[in-house]
């Protein structure tokens, strides 16, 4: 699959999920992102990601519920004297938190194809020439990720056998510090290797380029149509904003805007055929 087409789809998902305040459209984008990623990368490779997304979204929801003591529908109340968490806990704050969690979750899943479906050199190829050096540096650093995670497991195990026991956050320094130092040393060695191979000499060329195929162009067109439709619907007042305060109301749903979000499901067909 073409990295530029993937980037266009990710950008469209991110734009819509950040542009609209309506949780119905956000939920639709999240569903499209999960379905598309499952088609391109396979559900088995998404397990860790989905677990992380659920945790982060839950945290975002909880944070808003705890910190925003606004809204008319009070569910329960903690004494105001308790710092930070004292005050009324409202249905509106919970709904706003859920909407925020949806935004974060959809944004993460929409960006996930870059790590789950594309090789680092594909991402680099997709960058404009002016960013090729940055891209090479990013590609190189991405290649260090597996060794950092292996190093973490190895150091934790070896330090345990050397008598280390996890006793609070400070004790983790004995694992984190060696892992970080090893990663930094690895980065320096990689930089040295890149320098020795002429990195930074000037403009670069690429061994292979991957042109956009017909199906890629169709995907880009679908994404553009989705974004334009949402923007027009919003500008004309068809896709109304949603705001949970002061009293919670259900978000209004515009059929045209919903149909525009459906276009983001296009990769389910395009990516499954190439997976």
């Amino acid at each position: 699959m073409n990295a530029r087409a993937v980037a266009a789809w990710s950008a469209a998902c991110l734009f819509i999920v950040l542009f609209t305040t309506n949780p119905a459209y956000k939920a639709m984008v999240l569903a499209a992102a999960i379905a598309s990623l499952a088609a391109g990368a396979g559900l088995h490779r998404m397990r860790g990601l989905l677990t992380g997304v659920v945790l982060i979204a839950a945290f975002a929801t909880l944070l808003n519920f705890i910190s925003a003591h606004l809204g008319a529908t009070v569910l329960f109340e903690l004494p105001q004297e308790i710092p930070a968490i004292g005050g009324p806990y409202t249905l509106e704050a919970l709904a706003a938190g859920l909407s925020g969690g949806l935004t974060v979750g959809a944004a993460i899943v929409a960006a996930a194809p870059f790590s789950l479906m594309l090789a680092s050199h594909d991402v680099m190829n997709a960058l404009p020439a002016a960013l090729s050096r940055t891209g090479a540096a990013i590609a190189a650093s991405l290649n260090l990720v597996p060794s950092v995670s292996a190093s973490f497991v190895q150091v934790t195990e070896a330090q345990r056998l050397r008598g280390w026991r996890p006793r609070g956050p400070r004790s983790w320094a004995e694992v984190i510090v060696p892992v970080v130092l090893t990663s930094v040393e690895g980065s320096i060695q990689l930089a040295e290797s890149m320098e020795a191979r002429g990195f930074g000499s000037g403009p670069r060329t690429a061994l292979k380029s991957s042109p956009l195929r017909k199906s890629d162009w169709l995907l880009v067109a679908a994404c553009a149509a989705a974004v334009i439709t949402i923007v027009i619907a919003h500008a004309t007042g068809r896709a109304a904003d949603w705001y949970p305060y002061p009293a919670l109301v259900a978000p209004s749903v515009d059929a045209v805007s919903l149909a525009a979000c459906l276009l983001l499901f296009a990769p389910v067909v395009a990516w499954r055929s190439r997976a």
Binding site: A119, S120, H121, A136, A139, A140, N143, L144, S147, G186, Q189, L190, S193, M194, R197, G198, F199, G200, S201, G202, P203, R204, T205, A206, L207, K208
Partner: peptide, 21 residues
């Protein structure tokens, strides 16, 4: 492991050549 930039062998071998355009 600490001198590999790309994940594909042929791209890796070409890295220096790409740098000198």
């Amino acid at each position: 492991e600490l001198q590999t930039v790309y994940d594909a062998v042929d791209r890796e071998v070409a890295f220096g050549l790409e740098n000198i355009a």
